[in-house]
């Protein structure tokens, strides 16, 4: 899917993605010539269809996690299905605020480890020392993590 500014005959460039948290997705595209912005809005079924392909509108910005689509999508997964071997835990891991920990605790155990790792990697990449709910919200939109 691409967007064309017909007036300028220029392909519009991806600008920003928003995940309101209701299963919908909003992505803004800007014409590099005239600056006009259009927003693509997808309903929950359309959003899910794109997510089901394991691709991200706006591009993949984090390395793929093992079984990431399965872990994000399966609703009947065992809480103890996965165990991290711990080798990748490093000393410079960001801190988690109490509110962020509380929010993380509400994530099903089946996917919690992956979600924690993605947010921690995001925080490290952006020089964030402490993960808060606000950081999680920003990361969610920037990384296209619907449902996390």
């Amino acid at each position: 899917m691409k967007f064309l500014c017909v007036e300028c005959d220029r392909q519009m460039a991806f600008e920003e993605r928003q995940l309101p948290g209701d299963g919908t997705l909003a992505a803004a595209f800007r014409c590099p010539q005239c600056g006009r912005v259009v927003a693509m809005l997808t309903n929950p079924m359309e959003t899910q269809l794109v997510a089901s392909l394991g691709v991200k509108i706006g591009g993949a910005t984090v390395s793929p996690q093992p079984l990431e689509t399965i872990r994000a999508a399966v609703a009947t997964g065992k809480d103890d299905a996965f165990v991290e071997d711990g080798k990748r835990e490093t000393g410079d891991a960001p801190a988690w605020s109490a509110e962020a920990q509380e929010r993380l605790a509400r994530v099903p155990g089946f996917v919690r480890g992956m979600v924690k790792r993605i947010y921690a990697d995001y925080a490290r990449d952006h020089g964030v020392a402490e993960i808060t709910p606000a950081v999680m919200d920003t990361a969610r939109s920037e990384l296209g993590l619907e449902g996390m």
């Binding site: 390395s63 793929p64 996690q65 093992p66 103890d80 299905a81 996965f82 165990v83 991290e84 071997d85 080798k87 990748r88 480890g113």
Partner: peptide, 8 residues
Amino acid sequence: SCTLHDGV
């Protein structure tokens, strides 16, 4: 449990 490490 299934062990995760190094992206696999």
